[in-house]
């Protein structure tokens, strides 16, 4: 989280201008307000990688559609959740980075 806060400013905004799409090699299922993600794999390494997204991350996952910019997703999150735009932005960047790190989303 510290690392992400340290990137606020131009770099932070630049990140929100990006458009991401879901990785087609990811299997997902909504369960209540949460979401389970499991990557389709080619090897036995890292078989423990089953990811559970909380309500906010699951909604961000929903909204990543290959066309919406980060700023548009941020605005939706701000509308739908009881958070300030700043908090929504911080959460969004955090979750997008995590999803990108596990290759669940790819920059379009």
């Amino acid at each position: 989280m510290d690392k992400i806060q340290g990137e606020r400013g131009n770099g932070f905004m630049h990140f929100l201008e990006k458009v991401f799409k879901k990785n087609e090699a990811m299997v997902f299922r909504k369960i209540g307000e949460e979401c389970i993600l499991v990557p389709v794999r080619q090897g036995a390494g890292d078989l423990e990688s089953i990811y559970t997204l909380n309500e906010t991350a699951a909604r961000i996952w929903d909204l990543v559609d290959g066309t919406a910019k980060g700023t548009e997703i941020r605005d939706k999150i701000t509308e739908e959740f009881d958070v300030t735009p700043e908090q929504a932005e911080k959460d969004l960047v955090h979750h997008l980075k995590e999803l990108a790190a596990i290759k669940a989303i790819i920059e379009n």
Binding site: R29, I31, G32, C35, I36, V38, I50, T52
Partner: peptide
């Protein structure tokens, strides 16, 4: 919920 599903999958 998702926690139980995740535990099952593991």
């Amino acid at each position: 919920g998702a926690e139980a599903v995740s535990m099952l999958l593991a």
